[in-house]
Design a binder for these strands. Sequence first.
DNA 1: GTGATGACGGAAA
DNA 2: CTTTCCGCCATCA
Length: 100
Amino acid sequence: MPAKSGGLDERTARIVARVRAIPAGFVRTYGDIDPRAPRLVGRILATTHEDLPWHRVVHADGSIPMGRRQRALLRQEGVPMRGDRVDLRQARLPSGMKIP
DNA sequence: GTGATGACGGAAA
DNA sequence: CTTTCCGCCATCA
């Protein structure tokens, strides 16, 4: 298994870094964070107990994975919503700030 | 070693 | 608009 010399897998590290880089009031999709392994992103958020803004990660169509719990948090940060979905047109973090 | 699973995504019907 | 199917990658049985 991966884990080069005493470190996290690069893919995992990259994902965590990106999630952390999402500013309040904006969101990103699993695919944006890692187009090659969106499911891995989900697994990281589900298993990683770090202080990650997990609620700022939503599906590619703007639907919310964790339902009302997550929806409340997003609304609290002023994320534009349309029904039970996030309005990605405004809330999606523009590319260019992809970071790592 | 194989096979199923999951906080997914995109194409096809 | 919805449903179905296939691909992705790291765990788990």
